[in-house]
Design a binder for these strands. Structure first.
Length: 873
RNA sequence: GGGGGCAUAGCUCAGUUGGUUAGAGCGCAUGCUUCACAUGCAUGAGGUCACAGGUUCGAGUCCUGUUGUCCCCACCA
């Protein structure tokens, strides 16, 4: 046997073990008709990114599930991948170019893309390395990238199909425009924050009168594009103006006063300036009243030619000058401070401009319906199910999805325009000529697709769809998607409707939603706060297993969790415990160790085997329900308390007692329980369990593909285990008693036990001596055998007595017993309360009533004993 | 305005379909160099489960309301 180090040192083996797994192809998924598939698609991290704590938790959860299923005998595919992250990557690249003193326009599309690919190669590889550090057991031979050939083909196919069905259209709508990234965004990519702003009240002169209509605005610069004033048709204050015109100050344009229900009489002045090209509501008003749309802000956020003399000014400079000029004209009636929600770019945080723009959209209503139904019919289940509500809420209020981006890094829109006849051609492959006029003067749409358009296809594009590949047929639909609640609108929803639309099936049967990993004070980890913790630093310090375990323990599904070094330390300490328990077993395991079935089991053996069975059942059930936190908790409890604190201590008399057969039997039990525990733990802490597995005599191959322990009724030993609990209780009682009376733990005292479990106590005499710190164990008929005034305590097995002679303080002892009596009386009263309640006896399950009665008996017995003892004092 | 979460020990959190005396980790107190482990062992203190009603034989758990707190969506120019 190789020697194990005295302390757990993850650095000594984690990397080595991952290499072994890789070289042995342990995570290779096989299409095997004899097995049930189990498929998980990894949410692809962005190429630009570095793994953060959120990823670490997400990956750990997936890995736990996947390793569990693999050990259970499924043919597991956990498919890893990387996302091209169109906007995020391009944004970073553009910044880099700026530092180099150039721009993407200067480089040109081709050169820019060449650089982007180089960037991808560099960062994509680093993400893979980080995932391996964590221990992720994914099939690297199937590593996918959202822009690889297979995925790109799927994107064109999907676009083509939607286009043919009329579910993709091009149109001029108000979209969110980022003047920094210079692209359109979808509604989901806008993050709102409350910013301090102002209301500027402008007076617009009514033509042909001396009167004014006052309007308020938060964006004065948009007045350049005003094409009407709207009032509510029921508003008597303005009724006489409807149908008249006002003269737009500075610009001089004559614009109508229209009546529209959209205007809230009670808000502001009751009159609204209408800028159809720069506000979604105004846009609608404009359509209803057939108003011209005048766009006054260009793509760079500067006023354009339509803005006359302000042309070329930045939007805020224009705002300043316009306000000043209005004031000069005496048309600024007041300024009020006003906090309002302003949309910011998800990526660069710039203030967005709503502008009218010609973009590509996906018609969402027809796609949302089936996606809602599938979840209603439980074809896909959310875990926890409360997230289904959030999902419904999104889909029921969904608006068309703007999918075009004015970017270069991404999937180019598969649409071509004929320069000669203007025909619009959507095709899977680049067309050679115009199908209408035969012209070869075709040019492809300049824009790219929203990154999420390709992500939406991830569960099947990675398997080769639209081809009916073996992988696709075998591994699709996938079993579970693991992701954070913040991604539901971006991704979960879109994969759902995409899967249903293109494959006719839900893309996954379950969605396991988790929360965010926050910092120690509960704040979101963010770059600006600088409070992010790098998982790799933690791994460096504590090892990957400790990080993994700390990220799933004490976490309830869907809830946020806080990261803290303390939690990782606790996990590390636990793993060190496992390590040393293994070391203890292996140090003693010499010679040939018999199988469990060949051994004469002792009461303690049956107890630990029984506890193991219970643990197997509980952990298996929890994992099947994706309750990782509960599973980890049960395992920790079993290994630390039952195995280490009790069974290992109980085994020592047998190991060192000099009876070779007893020793071999105990070792058989120790090895069996240890091996089972290691297997149960493996999904959570794969490295250390693999390392320990390698030391176990008789263990073959890798723990990765070992059989997951199964609950065995024959090994449940329910009765025996319950009986043995009395021995444990007895030992605890002796220890407590010694502490209570101030007897030093090192002082060995004789122990007298009055019990009906004579055989059980006798069989465990050595254990009681060792664990309770007792010199001799006597089976007594009464406390009198322990001499005059022994200290006593009742326990579930009966009553224990220790003659402590001069150590006993009569008064203290009386107080101690009285306190105990009080507690017992309380219990009796409680049980009595239930048992005298006719309704309880009649309606509660019989077992419960019986238990309660038995309990009362037990406490009555205890009461009697304590009272007797008090009399003797 | 709409939707949702959370409120349990000093702190961080678990608590399965309602059912023993509500748990864990950390922290705290006391005592232990016991031959796997001080990254440890033993013993212990600490909780009106936010509040008020209701359903039930029985509520931390289910229902209604209140308060506090956080998040998401929408958004009035």
């Amino acid at each position: 046997m190789k020697e194990m180090n005295t302390t757990y040192d993850p650095k000594a083996f984690e990397d080595k073990i991952y290499e072994k797994w890789t070289s042995e192809g342990s995570f290779r998924a096989e299409v095997d008709p004899a097995k049930l598939p189990f498929t998980v698609m990894m949410p692809p991290p962005n190429v630009t990114g570095r793994l953060h704590m959120g990823h670490a938790m997400d990956e750990t959860m997936q890995d736990v599930i996947v390793r569990f299923k693999r050990m259970q005998g499924h043919s597991v595919l956990w498919l890893p991948g990387v996302d091209h992250a169109s906007l995020a990557t391009e944004h970073k690249l553009v910044e880099k170019l700026r530092e180099e003193g150039t721009t993407k326009e200067e480089l040109g599309r081709e050169e820019f893309l060449r650089r982007a690919w180089a960037w991808k190669e560099e960062y994509g590889g680093s993400i893979v390395g980080q995932l391996k550090k964590l221990g992720s057991s994914c099939d690297w031979s199937r590593l996918a990238f959202t822009m690889d050939e297979t995925c790109s083909k799927a994107v064109r196919e999907a676009f083509f199909r939607l286009y043919e069905k009329g579910l993709i259209y091009r149109g001029s709508r108000i979209i969110n425009w980022c003047p920094d990234c210079k692209t359109a965004l979808s509604d989901e990519e806008v993050s709102y924050s409350e910013d301090a702003g102002h209301f500027w009240y402008f007076k617009y002169p009514v033509k042909g009168t001396e009167e004014f209509i006052t309007v308020a605005t938060t964006r004065p610069e948009t007045m350049l594009g005003d094409t009407a004033i709207a009032v509510n048709p029921k508003d008597e204050r303005y009724a006489r103006f409807v149908g008249k015109t006002v003269i737009l100050p500075i610009v001089g344009r004559e614009i109508p006063v229209v009546a529209d229900d959209y205007v809230d009489i009670a808000f502001g002045t009751g009159a609204v300036k209408i800028t159809p090209a720069h506000d979604p509501n105004d846009f609608e008003v404009g359509l209803r009243h057939d108003l011209p749309m005048i766009r006054v802000l260009g793509d760079d956020g500067r006023v354009n030619e339509a803005g006359g003399k302000f042309c070329g000014l930045g939007r805020y400079e224009a705002r300043k000058q316009i306000v000043a000029e209005m004031e000069g004209l005496g048309l600024l009636s007041k300024i009020e401070p006003h906090a309002h929600n302003v949309g910011h770019c998800h990526r660069c945080n710039a203030v967005l401009e709503p502008v009218v723009s010609k973009q590509w959209f996906v018609r969402m209503k027809p796609l949302a319906g089936p996606a809602i139904h599938a979840v209603m019919q439980n074809k896909t289940k959310f875990v926890p199910d409360r997230f289904a509500k959030i999902y419904f809420n999104w889909l029921e209020n969904i608006r068309d999805w703007c999918i075009s981006r004015q970017l270069w890094w991404g999937h180019r829109i598969p649409v071509w325009y004929c320069a000669d006849c203007g025909e619009v051609i959507c095709a899977r492959e680049t067309p050679a000529k115009c199908p209408k006029c035969g012209s070869e003067a075709l040019h492809q749409d300049e824009d790219c697709l929203d990154t999420w358009f390709s992500s939406a296809l991830w569960p099947f594009s990675t398997l080769g769809w639209p081809e009916a590949t073996e992988d696709f047929k075998y591994f699709y639909p996938t079993d579970v998607l693991v992701t954070g609640y913040d991604i539901i609108p971006f991704w979960v929803m879109r994969m759902m409707f995409s899967g249903l639309e293109y494959t006719g099936k839900v893309p996954f049967r379950n969605v396991l939603i988790h929360g965010l990993v926050r910092d120690e004070q509960g704040r979101k980890m963010s770059k600006s706060l600088g409070n992010g913790v790098d998982p790799l630093d933690v791994i460096e310090k504590y090892g990957a297993d400790s990080l993994r375990l700390s990220l799933v323990t004490g976490v309830a599904p869907g809830n946020d969790t806080r990261y803290s070094d303390g939690k990782v330390e606790a996990a590390r300490n636990f793993i060190n415990k496992i390590w040393n328990a293994s070391r203890f077993v292996l140090m003693n395991a010499e010679g040939k160790i018999p199988k469990l079935s060949e051994v004469q089991l002792q009461p303690a053996d049956r107890w630990i085997i029984s506890r193991l069975q219970t643990t197997i059942r509980e952990v298996t059930v929890s994992l099947q329900k994706y309750d990782l936190g509960i599973a980890a908790d049960k395992l920790t409890d079993f290994v630390w308390n039952d195995l280490c604190d009790w069974y290992i201590e109980l085994s020592k008399p047998a190991l060192y007692g000099g009876d070779p057969e007893r020793k071999r039997g105990t070792l058989a039990v120790l090895l069996f329980v240890l091996e089972s525990a290691i297997k149960l733990l493996h999904p959570f802490i794969p490295f250390v369990t693999e390392e320990i597995y390698g030391y176990l005599p008789g263990a073959e191959g890798s723990i990765v593909t070992a059989d997951y322990p199964r609950y065995n009724t024959k090994l449940a030993y329910k009765k025996e285990a319950k009986a043995f609990e009395e021995i444990i209780d007895l030992i605890k009682s002796v220890r407590a008693m010694k502490v209570e009376v101030g007897c030093p733990p090192s002082k060995k005292v004789p122990l007298y036990i009055v019990t009906e479990q004579k055989r059980l106590v006798a069989a465990n005499r050595a254990c009681i001596q060792k664990l309770a710190g007792v010199s001799e164990v006597y089976l007594a008929e009464s406390g009198a055998e322990a001499g005059e005034r022994p200290v006593s305590k009742v326990c579930s097995a009966g009553q224990i007595f220790v003659p402590l002679g001069e150590l006993v303080n009569i008064e203290a002892e009386r107080a101690r017993l009285e306190k105990e009596l009080e507690r017992v009386m309380g219990e009796i009263a409680r049980a009595d309360g239930k048992l005298t309640n006719k309704n309880f006896v009649a309606k509660a399950p019989r077992k419960l009533v019986e238990d309660e009665a038995a309990k009362k008996e037990k406490y009555l017995d205890m009461k009697k004993r304590i009272e007797q003892q008090l009399k003797l004092l």
